[in-house]
Amino acid sequence: MMRFLHKLASPKTFYALSGRIIPWAGVSALLLILVGAYWGLVEAPADYQQGDSFRIIYVHVPAAWMSLFVYVVMAGAGAIGLIWRIKLAEIIAISSAPIGASFTFLALVTGSLWGKPMWGTWWVWDARLTSELILLFLYLGVMALYGAVEDKRTASRAAAILAIVGVVNIPIIHYSVEWWNTLHQGPTVTKLDKPSIAPEMLWPLLIMALGFKLYYVATVLMRARVELLERERNSRWVQEMVEAG
């Protein structure tokens, strides 16, 4: 088992394996997102109170879920990289940052586009919105820190420490709507009793969420491969690959 993992973590094996995963994950992600968008925009009925504006949830909610999920992956990979000094974990961590930042940005902007017609405001400084904005700054901070240090391995360690410290923000975002009075409504799908959303509205949401997750798998591997090549540019297998074209 350990030997298998070690082989997996070797740059060359990872490069070949990820090259085979990316098309599958990417195509399934594209299909799921298209189906989810069609179902959410066309098939799902309008909400009894919010009318058609509620269709924004099919972008907003998966993006918000992914913004938290990607952060946990980034911090976890960063911790593994710090403790075991595994290069590949460092690469996965830093490759996750721009994707997570994108999801966070999408969650904030689509939330704003939903808030204007429904709440009556683009933005309020309530606990949920503020903590999600802090998450965006954490992602940007990790990226900036990584970019500011010349040596990539030192940069990875510094970025990982920032990412790990920022993990405390994750439960704050998740529970903010329960701990404090917020303008943002409480949880719908993850409520312990049954979710308070009609099934024909829930299905496209879950499909979209799965599509976003596979999209993350595909794009993080794409970024990781480039980052890996960049770091290994002087190694033999990369040279040979360039030679082959």
């Binding site: 925009l41 058609d52 504006s53 972008v59 994108s102 999408l106 794409m222």
Partner: peptide, 20 residues
């Protein structure tokens, strides 16, 4: 509101594929 949300999402998702 709806079309801006979806359009922006498509643009951001696409950008993350093109960049690498």
């Amino acid at each position: 509101y709806v079309w801006t949300s979806y359009g922006l999402a498509a643009a951001v998702l696409l950008a993350n594929v093109i960049h690498p």
